[in-house]
Design a protein around this nucleic acid. Structure first.
Lengths: 242, 242
DNA sequence: AGTATACATCTTGTATACAATACTATGGAA
DNA sequence: TTCCATAGTATTGTATACAAGATGTATACT
């Protein structure tokens, strides 16, 4: 693994874990000292994290860890829903080959098996997260647009905007099972809409699907213990927008 | 101006002008030779252009100038419409302060003055382009979401996805005047929709607005002379998607 | 002719020294 | 006390040398 990738992964983790707090200032040399690599990979990593939105440049030099207001999170979720909705609509409008539809169906069947038992174990939940990510990735693929896929990928670099957003928090909800079931219903529904060429329906479903994460966001906001477990939770700043 | 910015601007221009053709391979050292700057700014520029989507990395080393299929262009326009539509909807849902609305109204009045005369001169057209960009920028601002604004900014780094996309080609259409008038109607309509808190209407208008560029795209595709004048026209590859 | 090996070349990753720029602190003058 | 100039410090920009890894080519062997 290159030093650049190492620096990137470690720095990102320091940020998402809260070890580097929102507003904290980072200069190249301070990161060099912290990570013990030379300036060149540090520069590349800093530039990348700026592009991802985790860092913002300070006019007087260096970068600050970005703080995210609750409204920012909501907007990020809405953005993802809008883009995944676009992907779903394109897929419905353009049609999707049967093998790809079947592949998605198989993934959904796997999800059913994971959440269909009685109580959902930690292992089940973990499996669900993995499968959920795959479902979303497939959905973006079947739209058949590299332009759209690339853009969605960029949105999802923020932890709050990924399909797994706040799922750690969800696992702690009393109604965790019910929400998974609802989400899975939406997975099934959007597949059906795509197959039936119902573009507007597909789009609306995916938008609503992304909004499910708002419940988890609310939960995380009301409980410090939960917030601590949420990836990137340390970046959330209570109050109005940044 | 730093060498990095110089390299970035020059390289981008070489690409958009067609001097560097789609598919052409660029290595760091070849660009160093071509631009006469050292590797460090070249690396930064190459990374940036990759992020913007103009270059794609080659597994064996170096970058290739990306070719855009016609479908990619259409998808990029649809993407911009979707995001600007989101911005318009958010603005309508959340409300916009009167001074900001008035600022937009003033810009639209300026556009009316520019296109309201008889024949549209080159200077008029040029002024329209500048004002059009400002209208769009204001529209994104009034949504009041930095998350969404940032994302739209990223989409618009591609020349085909900017509000000015293919406007050079439009200027050559016999019905250029009519299209400007229609676009301006849509500007007025979306402002009204925002003011009236009509989110769905605002969103639909901006989507349709972005699709206007398709006419210009068709024109450019059918006429090499026109295509040559379009910024980034050299990147367009006829045929199906890349 | 096909395959393996050695060597050359290309390309990128990395570290580091030097230069340029911007910011901050300090001292002096009004 | 306030303002301005200067010096010091911090930070980034840049160039370049060295190293590592990948690819391509030539040659020898089967």
């Amino acid at each position: 693994m290159s030093q650049t990738v190492t620096a990137l992964l470690r720095l990102r983790e320091l940020i998402l874990s809260g070890a580097l707090a929102p507003g904290e200032r980072l200069s190249e040399l301070s990161v060099v000292d912290q990570l013990g690599v030379s300036r060149t990979p540090v520069r590349a990593a800093l530039a990348r994290l700026e592009e991802e939105g985790l860092l913002e440049p300070i006019p007087s030099g260096g970068f600050a860890v970005r703080a995210f207001a609750v409204d920012d999170i909501r907007d990020a979720l809405e953005l993802r829903g809008t883009l995944e909705g676009l992907a779903a609509r394109l897929a419905a409008e353009r049609g999707v080959a049967l093998p790809a539809l079947n592949e998605m169906r198989r993934l959904l069947d796997s999800i059913d098996r994971v959440i269909g038992g009685g109580q959902i174990s930690a292992a089940d939940f973990s499996a669900y997260i993995g499968l959920n990510e795959q479902v979303h990735a497939r959905l973006i693929d079947v739209a058949g647009s590299t332009v759209v896929a690339r853009q969605i990928g960029r949105v999802m670099t923020l932890p709050f905007a990924s399909p797994s957003a706040f799922l750690e928090a969800q696992g702690m909800l009393p109604e965790a099972r019910a929400i998974l079931t609802l989400a899975q219903e939406q997975h099934r529904a959007v597949l059906e809409a795509i197959e039936n060429r119902e573009g507007a329906r597909a789009e609306a479903i995916m938008r609503e699907h992304a909004r499910l994460a708002r419940r988890n966001l609310q939960l995380a906001l009301g409980d410090q213990e939960v917030l601590r477990r949420v990836r990137g939770g340390a970046l959330i700043r209570h109050g109005l927008r940044a």
